[in-house]
Design a protein around this nucleic acid. Structure first.
Length: 1167
RNA sequence: GCGCGUAUAGCUCAGUUGGCUAGAGCGCAGCUCUGAUAAAGCUGAGGUCCCUGGUUCGAGUCCAGGUACGCGCACCA
């Protein structure tokens, strides 16, 4: 048995693909699981990936962590579930399916089968399911490509199964949906489920409510027409409230006017009229920065937004002060501030609304009828119409003088805060628009108008002008939400939705408080600590509103809420399939055989036991975070096998990208688990990680062309655009390189991903590791090293440098165990890089090449033992590194392992136990000594550089003045090593009372000159006489900083010195003719080696050689150093005459002369 | 507006319990080595450790205040 030859040029992606095949053939994953059967459990819970598109590289980050910790805990002997999850339901999938089918709106969906809404929804839902299956399968294949070991569904057979029966979990599975039902029922049993009307942003074109999350993507800086309107006060003839609004269409639904009781309001006389408005608003410079809401993407190109000023659009005139409006209207007569009044004293004043003639304004409890009915049933409202309700109310602090007039037009059916104020003050809600954004019946000339249409605003102005209520109209610029799909402006619309009551906002009461107590538990950890996840989660929990669980869409959880056909306040929450079957009075047979999705679930009708009437399911589907939040129960068989659930709950570990998730998955998981388990947390450790950016630090966007698909990074390569839009093609980097980029990164911060950082990682980590491995194997082949048969050299008998490497290796094992088991793989990865680059590649291997290279036949017994010691040391190190790194980079380590392993080693590196450190091999003294040596070598190289003498040129002597006894001892211990590294013949210590080097200080003129000014010359004169070890901080009477002075070390004549932190050394730079010739010999060797390479010879080939030099100096070198040259270039024959057989021939011109070289290969036995 | 976090070299970031003459990688500049060669290595320039004050023998590190940026929440009439 011997090592296979290793090529140094590797196609890593291709290598990875072959490893994948090999794992499959040999069933390595199955064997790993079998090994861990019955071992302690390590429980992981997957946050489901949305099965809606192929994976991007951002998905690979979290999935890398997931795989890394699975593999580590596998190697340390733990049983695991290996279950991946797919998120299936929700608007994102619907949107993509709409795109596929070319649908533009809900009406298009409901008309997919023309004229048949039910069949249309059924078809649409089936399309959604199909899309999920398609992309779940693609994501599965891509995850496998990443090296992610899970129980994957791989065959057609697997994918033909229903989602419930597959290996991965699917949130669209029946089990998942019905478990959410159980959760909702528990909530209902505690009285937490309620139906609420709320005003939310709505897209009239898509006919759907837009959630906060979706809204954040759609803010744009736009221009609207805003208007000032006067509301005549009742019983105060000629007096008016002055209100201002940016959404004129909502004036049709005005019910109240809100003031801040704490503010002072002015009475301003204009002509015969008195206007009320806030004092602060009257003279306010309205263009000064306000509502500092931060520019959004569109602003950047649109120009505008200057610092300290309001974001504005070019071409729109600046806002006038309100005072200016008054001045203009007053003309020569002027206006007059005739008094002031506290807002508190205005409360309750009645006024006449701007559109009181509309039928909608006359209807008790609000408008339209269904709104009024709910308002009546809710009990917050008195039986009055809007017209009757018009009055001044308190808006509290929310009303400011910084915007508008300080009196806020309040339309409870058209605005979020308006609705709240309406509820508090008994102002009935008027909802003017339908789900298409068009005014409904009851609004006179407005009925049939699009609310968002600018013409509607003009119509409002015309009406107001006609009535004499319009004070002013202005062009106004503000950030306004738009539909993230179709880009149309959103409207605030009153809709009925379903909620879970979380308890009073800002308190720790109720359900909210229960979840907070779980989050505070000390056995629940939030990592990384810098991001303070626990505090973030608590912050969200403290401030969140009630959980809106409904969505007026098609593809999703069927909310298990059945409502009485007559009385909308009577509803029931069904907790599961069997319960529904038992309660069904109609439609079960139609539903039977279908998943609990629309439209089939809607067929089932139950009876209201209290009224005897029928109850129908509400058409709403669920918030998708319900789907993902239940998985700690649905996937752990909470319904069917409670023992299993107890074994695996809570999860030891979860990890996801954290931005957003504290209010999404983490929240849903915590909330639902708190309810379901009565306070047992769903996880022990949560690891959050940041976002993937492009390599320039920009967010990745498909539209910007800087997003990278997973498969492009792994296998196909692709193109990215830099920030200037220039296209940059890139080659595939493979999964391991990607994985290492992720594991070495600090999860608390965003990661800049791209070909440039990938190249860096590849050369820094992968090439060094692979080259070391290749060198080891290839030399071992030549030397006949074989780990099993080559005589072992006990570690304690190996040279210091070997024991040093092994000692550092043990420390690395300790770090690895500590880091992996505390979910801090970065700590391991960074140490590992240092070990590979610093210790292994750049020090041990470089230092010990000669030991591996030495000609076996020429070695005595001790020499052979020394050589074997080096091989054993390297072998152990490479093997161990494979095992330590296997969780992070499973492919390259497997490839190496296959060549390195010897029976009875496990057939795969992933079947190994994770290494244990051998305490006996740890020698901290040795590590410290070597660190000193490395520092001194670096210092010596610095001196050579100063002297401008190549390292190739041997020098006579190095004198060292160590900084400490430790340093001296370390240097004595590793004297040979230092001499060799620095190519110096001898090393002596400096003794004597005088320092080896004289310190001289120079001015750093760049920084010191400005301080000294005209005293510069004087200061330099003073410096010339100064030789202290510390810089003089006062020169020419001027204070200087240490940085203004630069030390220079003056060595004795014939020497060059350098110094650092008390260590000083001096290098004898006298080059004798002998030394020069030695240096030339190395030059000759190098060029002959170059010639060998060009001749295409293998490392192990022997040669016949002829060399002729045209200078006497070089000729002398060739004679004098012939044995050394011959050995180095493996010349068995050195001919005095030009060679006559087939030769490689080259003439090399050097400054020192010209070399004529001939060589050809000879059989090894020829010598 | 409220809350959380961050601020260290041109860029990306390390920096443990306070001991620092502040580090790494990339980039830049200058070199070296040469059978790891589509590689490897060395040296150098480059710092107000955001600002101000405090605690301390000693502060990048701890405390207070400020500034800037990021994130979350609220608001955007």
């Amino acid at each position: 048995m011997t090592f296979a030859k290793v090529e140094t040029a590797v196609d890593f992606p291709a290598l990875e693909r072959s490893i994948l095949r090999w794992w499959d053939e040999r069933q390595i994953f199955a064997k790993r699981k079998a090994l861990n059967e019955g071992k302690p459990r390590w429980s992981f819970l997957d946050g489901p990936i949305t099965a809606n598109n192929p994976m991007g590289v951002h998905h690979a980050w979290g999935r890398t962590y997931k795989d890394v910790y699975h593999r580590f805990f596998a190697m340390t002997g733990h049983q695991m579930r290996y279950q991946n999850g797919f998120d299936c339901q929700g608007l994102w999938v619907e949107v993509e399916v709409e795109k596929e089918l070319g649908l533009k709106s809900k009406r298009d969906i409901e008309n997919l089968v023309p004229g048949d809404v039910e069949a249309s929804i059924d078809l649409f839902v089936r399309h959604c399911k199909a899309r999920v299956d398609k992309y779940a399968r693609i994501q599965t294949e891509q995850s496998i490509r990443l090296g992610y070991w899970m129980n994957w569904d791989r065959s057609d057979e697997d994918w033909a199964k229903r989602p419930d029966d597959r290996k991965s979990y699917f949130t669209m599975s029946e089990e998942n949906n019905y478990t959410i039902w159980a959760f909702l029922k528990k909530c209902h049993q505690r009285g937490l489920i309620y139906r609420g009307y709320d005003v939310m942003p709505w897209c009239g074109r898509c006919g759907v409510g837009i959630s906060e999350m979706e809204m954040k993507e759609g803010y744009k800086l736009v221009e609207h027409k805003a208007c000032f309107v006067r509301f005549p006060l009742v019983g105060r003839s000629g007096e008016y409230l002055l209100v201002w609004t940016t959404t004129p269409w909502t004036l049709t639904s005005n019910v109240g006017a809100a003031v801040n009781p704490e503010l002072t309001y002015l009475r301003v006389r204009l002509g015969n009229d008195i206007y009320y408005l806030a004092e602060g608003a009257f003279r306010l410079d309205r263009m000064a920065s306000l509502g500092e809401s931060g520019p959004d993407e569109e602003d950047q190109t649109g120009g505008a937004s200057t610092r300290g000023r309001r974001a504005w659009l070019p071409g729109v005139p600046p806002l006038r002060r309100i005072e200016q409006w008054f001045a203009e209207k007053a003309g020569a007569d002027g206006y007059e501030v005739v008094g002031a009044i506290r807002g508190a004293d205005m409360l309750g004043w009645q006024y006449i609304g701007p559109f009181d003639e509309l039928p909608a304004q006359q209807h008790p409890y609000g408008y339209p009828e269904e709104v009024a009915r709910v308002a009546r049933q809710a009990g917050h409202w008195p039986p009055v119409s809007a017209v009757q309700a018009h009055r001044v109310i308190s808006g509290g602090d929310a009303v400011t003088a910084d915007e508008g007039t300080g009196i806020v037009h309040t339309a409870p059916g058209c605005g979020g805060i308006d609705y709240v104020w309406g509820k508090e003050n008994g102002l009935p809600p008027i909802a003017p628009i339908g789900d298409d954004g068009v005014f409904v019946q009851g609004f006179g000339v407005f009925t049939g108008q699009q609310a968002a249409d600018p013409a509607t605003a003009e119509l409002v102005f015309a009406e107001l002008r006609r009535k004499g209520l319009l004070f002013a109209v202005e062009r106004y610029v503000h950030r306004y939400p738009h539909c993230w799909r179709c880009k149309t402006e959103l409207l605030y619309r009153l809709v009925d939705e379903w909620f879970i009551h979380m308890g009073p906002r800002g308190s720790e009461e109720g359900f909210r408080g229960e979840i907070m107590r779980v989050v505070r538990r000390p056995d629940v950890r939030f990592l990384p600590e810098e991001i303070n996840g626990r505090a973030r989660e608590l912050d969200w929990l403290r401030n969140m509103g009630d959980w809106m669980i409904s969505k007026k869409r098609y593809w999703g959880l069927a909310l298990p809420i059945w409502v009485d056909e007559e009385d909308p306040t009577q509803f029931e929450v069904i907790g599961g399939r069997e319960e529904l079957r038992a309660r069904a009075v109609q439609g079960w047979e139609l539903f039977e055989g279908h998943t609990p999705h629309r439209p089939w679930i809607d067929k089932v009708i139950i009876r209201n036991p209290r009224t005897g009437r029928l109850m129908h399911r509400i058409p709403d589907v669920g918030n998708p975070w319900l789907d993902a939040g239940i998985v700690a129960f649905s996937t752990l068989r909470w319904n069917t096998d409670r023992d299993y659930w107890r074994q695996w709950y809570p999860a030891d570990f979860i990890t996801e990208s954290f931005p957003g998730q504290f209010r999404n998955w983490f929240y849903a998981l915590l909330a639902m688990s708190t309810m379901m388990s009565e306070g047992e947390p769903p996880f022990r450790t949560l690891l959050g990680h940041g976002l993937v950016r492009d390599q320039y630090g920009q967010e990745m966007h498909k539209s910007a062309g800087n997003a990278i698909e997973f498969i492009a990074a792994a296998d196909t390569g692709g193109v990215i655009r830099d920030p200037k839009g220039k296209e940059i093609p890139f080659r595939p980097m493979g999964a391991d390189v990607m994985r290492w980029m992720y594991v070495r990164h600090n999860p608390a911060t965003n990661l800049n991903f791209g070909p440039a950082p990938a190249d860096e990682i590849r050369s820094k980590v992968f090439f060094k590791l692979w080259n070391t491995y290749a060198m080891f194997c290839n030399y071992a082949i030549g030397d006949g090293y074989e780990p099993l048969t080559t005589p072992e050299v006990p570690v304690e008998q190996r040279p210091d440098v070997d024991r040093w490497l092994l000692s550092n290796l043990q420390l690395l094992i300790q770090t690895a165990r500590q880091a992996y088991s505390s979910y801090n793989v970065m700590a391991f990865a960074l140490e590992c890089e240092k070990f590979i680059e610093g210790d292994l590649s750049n020090w041990y291997v470089r230092r010990n090449k000669d030991r591996l290279h030495s000609r076996h036949a020429e070695l005595d017994e001790a020499g052979r033992r020394d050589k074997w010691a080096a091989y054993h040391t390297l072998y152990t190190t490479l093997r161990t590194l494979c095992q330590l790194m296997a969780p992070c980079v499973p492919f390259i380590t497997e490839a190496m392992w296959q060549n390195l392993r010897r029976d009875p080693d496990p057939e795969s590196v992933h079947l190994c136990d994770f290494p244990q450190p051998d305490e006996r091999l740890i020698d901290r003294q040795l590590s410290a000594d070597m660190a000193i040596v490395q520092r001194i070598v670096s210092l010596g190289l610095g001196a050579r550089q100063l002297a401008k003498i190549n390292v190739r040129q041997p020098l006579r002597q190095l004198i060292l003045a160590p900084a400490s006894a430790e340093e001296r001892r370390a240097v004595e211990r590793f004297q040979d090593l230092i001499l060799d590294e620095l190519n110096v013949k001898s090393l002596t210590f400096h003794n004597g009372p005088e320092p080896l080097l004289t310190t001289r200080w120079r001015l750093n003129k760049k920084t010191a000159a400005p301080k000294l000014g005209p005293h510069l010359a004087e200061a330099e004169a003073e410096l010339a006489h100064y030789h202290g070890d510390t810089p003089p901080l006062t020169l020419a009477g001027t204070e200087l900083a240490a940085a203004d002075l630069v030390p220079e070390y003056i060595a004795p004549a014939g020497y060059v010195g350098s110094a650092e932190r008390g260590t000083q050394l001096a290098l004898d730079v006298t080059i004798t003719p002998e030394l020069r010739q030695e240096g030339l010999a190395r030059l000759v060797i190098r060029h002959i080696q170059e010639a060998r390479k060009k001749a295409g010879l293998d490392l192990l080939d022997k040669i016949a050689l002829y060399v002729r030099a045209d200078t006497s100096e070089l000729a002398q070198v060739l004679v004098k150093h012939r044995p050394a040259i011959a050995t180095a270039v493996q010349a068995l024959n050195w001919s005095e005459q030009p060679l006559d057989t087939q030769v490689y021939e080259e003439t090399i011109s050097l400054p020192e002369g010209t070399l004529h070289v001939q060589l050809h290969r000879v059989p090894a036995s020829a010598g």
